[in-house]
Simulated scan of single mutants.
Amino acid sequence: MSTAHVHDVLVIGGGNGGISAAARLRRRGCLDVGLIEPSDRHVYKPLQHYVGTGLASPDELVRPQSSLIPDGVVWHRTAAVAIDPVRRSVRCADGSEVRGRDIVLAPGARIDWSRLPGAEQALADGTAITTFVDAELERSRTRIDAMAGGTAIFQVHAQPASGLETAFKPLFIACDTWRAAGTLDRIRVTLVHEAARLHPVAAIEQEIRRHLDDYGVEVRLGTRITSIDGDAVTLRGPAGEAVEQADLVGLHPPYAAPRLIADSGLDGEGTGGFAAVDPETLRHPQHPRIWVVGDAGDLGDARTGGALRQQVKLVVENIRLARAGQPLERYDGYTVAPIATARRSLSFGEYDRSLQVRRSLPVPDEIRSSPLWHVLDRFGLPQVYWHRILKGRL
């Protein structure tokens, strides 16, 4: 094997975190940035829920990855297979080896349907829908529109989950769609939520509950779907296990860590394979020149695009500070909970690791659902994403 090229900074992953980190590094003067990513298409994931419920067009969702690679960044169009954290060397699926003086680990999380028996067959049969997978979005929209009566069960599970609060979006948008069609009174809607509370922040929880009550949704906390067999859904909750019939099941997919992390010995004990990381500096605790952003890291609830934007800014700055021997900046666990409560209204809650409400917008109450926040989430943020975040400008 030829000698591996050593980039000044090597980024693994070409999603939101990876592309924006690479772009920001270049804008901050890093002359040699490498990016490892095999996919030729880039999906703006928050828009999936709007496409899957008929509120956005599929052509707004995806752009060619080649059009988003920042100028001057070397794109290694292959998958990372294993990382030698001591040498900071990455073995790739195409047989190549790439190294970095620093590595930014941003491979995201992966959906693992094997953790929910029967889910894939239920999706294929049309009993189940999900707005978290772009290949399922058209089917989801069609099934929601066609539902005129019966029983619908929507699922929200605990961490790890990518964009946890967005799992409420398909439930609320579907309910509003059915209300507008005059069919909501003929549909029994149940929310199955794995956590003991609807949300750990009291003000956000209260807003979610207000809209669930308005739509007449039955809520089962501490309960999860364990399997699906046709229209038979097995639920496990405080009272034990029970089987219920459902005409429609809205699935929040089970997420797992990329195999790359555990295979490279970078996972934290008890994390299920997610990357060990100092939650404040975003540095790997054993390998100080490996940095972690996004869903692949063991960062608790901070698995949203808003959180990722803060993490990327901090990691890029901390690489500079670490090289200069200066104290590192600290991440406070900021994240955001954009919850669509209707087809054209949204709650935009922000909070940090201490579960304190944060406010970045110049208004008295972002948590109270408003059409203004819907316009921001549906129309404003996609443009900000494509033209500013992925270009390292925000």
Rank of each mutant, 00 (worst) to 15 (best):
L361H: 11
R87I: 11
G306F: 02
V249H: 03
R323K: 15
L260P: 05
E136Q: 14
L105R: 04
Y331T: 04
E97P: 04
E60P: 07
L376I: 12
G392F: 00
T131S: 08
R344L: 11
F154G: 00
A180G: 05
L123K: 04
L221S: 02
R139I: 10
S347K: 03
Y331A: 06
D40F: 13
G240F: 10
R179Y: 10
F172L: 08
G250P: 04
V363F: 12
L137W: 06
Q383Y: 14
D134N: 13
Q245T: 13
I69N: 02
S347W: 05
G333N: 06
I144S: 07
K45L: 13
L68H: 06
L47C: 03
G108Q: 08
S369V: 11
L314D: 00
A152V: 00
G230H: 00
Q159V: 12
L10F: 06
P364K: 07
Q65C: 05
V217Y: 04
A337N: 02
E205C: 01
V98E: 06
G182P: 09
T234N: 05
K45A: 11
V6N: 09
R209F: 08
L171F: 02
R368P: 03
V62M: 14
E165R: 10
I204D: 00
A180C: 07
L198T: 05
K169Q: 15
Q48C: 15
H284W: 11
V86A: 13
R179I: 12
G150H: 04
T53M: 12
A322K: 07
I19M: 04
L123R: 06
L25S: 02
P170Q: 04
D84G: 04
D247M: 09
I111D: 00
V73I: 01
G333P: 09
D71I: 13
V312H: 06
D298F: 14
P371I: 09
A124W: 09
A122K: 03
V293I: 15
D295A: 05
A135V: 13
A232Q: 15
L394V: 10
G349T: 07
R110C: 10
A119D: 03
N318T: 08
A324T: 03
H211A: 08
Q310V: 11
P170I: 04
G349N: 05
Y215D: 02
T183G: 04
D71A: 14
A239V: 13
T166V: 14
T335A: 05
T271I: 11
P200G: 03
L55V: 08
A109S: 13
S39Y: 12
G222V: 08
D185F: 09
I173G: 06
D214E: 15
S39I: 07
A337T: 08
T335P: 01
G118K: 05
I83N: 01
R26C: 07
P371H: 03
A275I: 11
G100Y: 09
G250K: 05
E269V: 15
R186D: 07
I319N: 00
R209D: 14
Q286F: 14
D176V: 10
V62R: 15
V243K: 02
A322V: 09
V312Q: 08
D365K: 04
R99L: 10
